[in-house]
Design a protein around this nucleic acid. Structure first.
Lengths: 126, 126
DNA sequence: ATACAACTTAAACCATGGTTTAAGTCAACA
DNA sequence: TGTTGACTTAAACCATGGTTTAAGTTGTAT
């Protein structure tokens, strides 16, 4: 199996090494191996897990939630139903958040149009 | 003109009164009037401004950015171009963020499908 | 008139998600 | 051999976005 260093993992996902160490300390990246000098060695499995962590982070799951998910991964196949349910709930939350963002963007656009109109008409206000 | 109390504003937008006071303190809600007892009175204009603040917050603009925007609103029509440009940039940032969220959701889905397959096939792994 | 709910303030406190610092270890190259 | 650069650690520090606390004022209902 191919291993990679923390600097390679950092470059691969464009996140600081400090953040990777922080995630490990928080329990989001368990079971990372070390070389003779104590340096982290990321297996392909660990890289896949880190990618999952990043996907969950990108969709605004709190680190505590990500940790719960990772704990279930470590626990094994008995937790697959729990994980699927968690992901289902999370996906709904993300879609709701994106809806809110879309609605809020619309609200902002409405004001922008007012500005643009005012610019041409010389009105005053917010 | 119709005025409303902090509790009415709080109810209208479903945000805590403490948060509204915090926003005022941070300069996001300037020029709020007071009654004889020193209580906040929100004019329709203020309510519209609060709605803008909330739209910007919902789309993850930092409070410091929202304050800049509000400062420009207060400054008057000479800042309309600046505001339009800011909103244009912000909108691009929000669309990029939503893209990343959508991509990350896909990444999560791929893993979920693997789980579902494994559940049926009895494989092992993340 | 008195009790209650709703309001006021400034300041301390809190959670989240990192980042920075200080001190040290190690491998490889000149 | 020594110095350079990448790595290690624990712990302190930081920014953001509020929330809570403590102490006090006000308006309305009984």
């Amino acid at each position: 199996m191919k291993y990679c260093s923390i600097s390679e993992a950092s470059a691969k996902f464009d996140i600081p090494e400090t953040t990777i160490r922080y995630y490990e300390k928080k329990g989001l990246l368990p079971l990372i191996e070390r070389d003779a000098a104590g340096r982290r060695l990321f297996s392909e499995n660990q890289i896949a897990l880190l990618e999952t962590v990043i996907c969950l982070k990108n969709t605004h799951m709190p680190l505590s939630g990500i940790k719960q998910y990772i704990d279930w991964v470590i626990e094994g196949d008995s937790t697959i139903e729990l994980r699927l349910q968690m992901m289902k709930n999370h996906k709904q939350a993300v879609l709701a958040e994106m809806s809110l963002m879309t609605e809020s963007l619309k609200g902002i656009d409405v004001k922008n149009e007012r500005y643009t109109n005012r610019k041409n008409k010389g009105e005053v206000g917010q």
